[in-house]
Amino acid sequence: MDGKPMNNTVQPESEASLIEDLKQGDSTAYQKAVREFSPGMLAVARFYLDHSSAEEIVQDCWVTVIDAVQKFEGRSGLKTWLHRIVANRCKNRLRTANREIATDFSETLEPELANRFNSKGRWDLPPKLQFHDSADRLMENGALSDCLDKHLSALPETQRSALMLYEAHQHKSDDVCNILDVSASNLRVLLHRARQKIFLMVETFQETGEC
């Protein structure tokens, strides 16, 4: 796996101390953990459920955590453990409602990108510009950041959740597959489709300055 950049998540030593505080029922520790982990938990829930049900599940999960954390032995990280609790709750709810997630894993290329190749499989419309700036430099551009937000919200939930867990929340592929209950090959399709959409968005933004 290529080295993914580290983000500012709770470090192992402080995670151990956070877990101990949660076990003690420290309300400040809960507030910290709620802010640190809820966005990821919501991303997991949104893979399965609509926005309002997803928020409800995340709230319920935090209440469950108060008792469940007493038995948490740290075999996985706290983040992975919390995400699994959310995923299991969502799967139970879907089972109760007898619903399944419908996702198309058959096409690996976005139609907009697929149309840029000729019949021989060569580029007809190759990428014109190179994204020169580093990710951090690009993110300093507020308009691009807003545009990224807009496009992320427009992604199908399945793609967005996979992307958020893998890229933003830095889960390993195995964990994402486990949490979202998708096969490794289907996860690859979800990630690739989502990245292509972001690639196309940045390209349009760099070429035209428009979102």
Binding site: P5, F131, S134, A135, M139, L148, A168, I198, V202
Partner: peptide, 9 residues
């Protein structure tokens, strides 16, 4: 770069 952008976002 798009992937890194998402990580940085």
């Amino acid at each position: 770069a798009s992937s890194n952008l998402l990580s940085a976002h």
